[in-house]
Design a protein around this nucleic acid. Sequence first.
DNA 1: CTGCATCCTTAATGATACTG
DNA 2: CAGTATCATTAAGGATGCAG
Lengths: 121, 121
Amino acid sequence: MEWNIFSRSCPSRTSLAQIANKWTAMIVISLVAGPLRFGELHTRIEGISKKVLTDTLRSLERDGMLIRADGRYELTELGRTLEEPLKALQIWAESHIEDVLDNRDRYDSAADEIVLVAHLL
Amino acid sequence: MEWNIFSRSCPSRTSLAQIANKWTAMIVISLVAGPLRFGELHTRIEGISKKVLTDTLRSLERDGMLIRADGRYELTELGRTLEEPLKALQIWAESHIEDVLDNRDRYDSAADEIVLVAHLL
DNA sequence: CTGCATCCTTAATGATACTG
DNA sequence: CAGTATCATTAAGGATGCAG
């Protein structure tokens, strides 16, 4: 069977949507070093609500990325295969953020100028 | 400066949210081979609405991932650095989807059993 | 064809209170 | 502590029509 994320109804797109997600990335990255409790995850991933954390953990558990064993969340073998690609996203985000912020400033001030000129006409 | 996606208000988290996104992934992957027109992107990325495509393209343009040159969207140098990590997500999604679907089936039928037992009590 | 603007619907997220 | 349940808010996504 040929799976293709570009195909509207291909299940692989739902899988992509699940892994291409900031909460998923932070949870998986947090669990790489070893199992953690709910509260530990809640502390490390600043700003995540208990509801969102619960929902995301259930969803990852359903997909077989992690398991819950005596109060701790642990990556499965499948989940560990996500370490590398998701860690790469973290590294990208943290190492390119200054460029991105500069670009945003430039873009926004260019937009401001357009508005300014428009007022002069 | 130390950037950290786990910090609630760190700008790098907004950047992570932008790249850890299925539409971003599909757009960037589509543009790796060369510039494309709006309509070409709209065709390749099945099921994306014009509004979402427009919004996502603007957002990526703002962050400096791509530029619009005479009707074509083209990755910038910064955007091309996303090729590898995002392509990795595509490959993961397409190559592990069968495992994921199996896991979902198992998880859901286990949940059904619990409901069944609950009815017997 | 390439968008932008609008309106509408749904999904994601957040806040709070509550229970085992 | 580890959730669940509920409600409120916000963001994402989609449909349609219009304009350059």
